[in-house]
């Protein structure tokens, strides 16, 4: 128990440091906010055009598809505010050879590197995502059910865990490949596929893409499942599957990370 408390305290200290830093650049709140709204526009524009032509696409109406975009935007906020900054830091550490300092510290290295930096203003997308939920349900003319909200909150946890685990896997690659600065872009662009409800992939390559984005890179679990849960449409087995699946994914990511660290420490002189 003492261990858990110690890690909570460490997290608190790291959060506080990032928070203080962010307070020094308060004007960034506005610039990040404006750019966030702008980028959201790129996610919405195709939807407007598509639903100008059709009222339902692969079983998703406009407002329902908006929920998926909302989840996409919200997770983007988490990604850019809480996950990206730290893990880009790891890539920096590896390149400059300063990861040794982290490894010397008497705490879990994965925890330390994952919490080293947060950019609160970058998390503006979370607000934008919530705004999209409100707008979508206003269009639908009814609110989400209580069970739906509970399920989607649970899925928020699993989605964040999945996102984080995927990132850990990407960063683990940084130990083996020399130049990985651009891996972050690559990762973000794959994440782009989570913008649309996963059923739009059904028609491509005889459903192979759907399978790929559900089981290999589980983008469907991150945005489509929570949107379905909000609408009360997600079957219970799928919910259970998401929980078990993301736990399994996190476990795999942890194993790979430990192995990579082992590789790093044995290879460096």
């Amino acid at each position: 128990m003492g261990m858990v408390r110690r890690y909570w305290r460490l997290l608190g200290i790291q959060l506080k440091a990032s928070g203080l830093l962010a307070l020094q650049y308060r004007a960034d709140f506005f610039t990040e906010g404006i750019t966030s709204l702008f980028w959201t526009f790129t996610a919405l524009a195709p939807l407007f055009v598509v639903y100008g032509e059709r009222s339902v696409v692969e079983g998703w109406g406009f407002a329902e598809a908006l929920l998926v975009v909302g989840w996409f935007t919200l997770l983007q906020g988490i990604l850019e505010g809480a996950i990206n900054p730290s893990l880009t830091g790891v890539v920096d550490h590896i390149r400059k050879g300063t990861l040794d300092f982290v490894l010397l510290k008497p705490a879990d290295a994965q925890f330390l590197v994952s919490t080293q930096r947060f950019l609160p203003w970058r998390a503006f997308n979370v607000l934008t995502g919530l705004g999209l939920f409100v707008y979508a349900f206003a269009k639908l003319g009814h609110g989400p059910s209580v069970t739906g909200v509970l399920a989607s909150v649970l899925l928020l946890g699993t989605s964040t865990l999945l996102l984080y685990s995927l990132w850990i896997l990407t960063v683990s690659a940084a130990f083996f490949v020399v130049r990985v600065d651009n891996l972050t872009y690559l990762f973000t662009s794959i994440f782009d596929f989570a913008r649309w409800p996963s059923s739009v992939f059904q028609g491509v390559a005889r459903g192979a893409l759907t399978i790929f984005f559900t089981y290999v890179i589980p983008l469907a679990l991150m945005t489509t499942f929570p949107a379905q849960a909000m609408l009360g449409r997600l079957p219970l087995p799928a919910l259970a599957g998401a929980v078990v699946g993301s736990a399994a994914f996190a476990w795999v990511a942890r194993r790979v990370w430990l192995r990579s660290i082992g590789h790093y420490t044995s290879a460096s002189s």
Binding site: L186, S189, D192, F193, W196, V200, F201, G203, V204, L209
Partner: peptide, 19 residues
Amino acid sequence: IWVLSTTMPLVNMVLWMAV
């Protein structure tokens, strides 16, 4: 890597194919 990260047209392609 940059080329691989310009996937936006493909993301939109699957959407429009579904439509």
